[in-house]
């Protein structure tokens, strides 16, 4: 099994016409710097964030960092 492949992922990069792969991606907010596995285009590096992640975990971490 190819670990880079993000299975059950129906989204493609529209520009590069490539399937997305799970890769470590740097995210940062205020004083926080993290690396998380996120689907991205292997060619242009555009990172995919879905709604559940944005209004769920990401929002939670944002609020947490804002409270520090």
């Amino acid at each position: 099994m190819n670990e880079d492949k993000n299975y059950n992922m129906p989204w493609l990069c529209d520009k590069c016409k490539r399937e997305l792969v799970l890769k470590k991606v740097k995210v940062r907010y205020l004083e926080g710097n993290f690396e998380v596995d996120l689907p991205k285009c292997p060619e242009c590096n555009m990172v995919f964030i879905d709604e559940e992640m944005a209004v769920g975990k990401m929002l939670e971490v944002e609020k947490e960092l804002e409270g520090k």
């Binding site: 991606v25 995210v27 907010y29 964030i49 709604e51 944005a54 990401m58």
Partner: peptide, 29 residues
Amino acid sequence: VTYWVKYEEKDEKILVKSVYSHRMEIVEE
């Protein structure tokens, strides 16, 4: 803020399916 919009193109009309945002910055490299 990073805004995300999910939409469907129907000729010159755009049907918006959902919108969300986050403040975290994603480093695309």
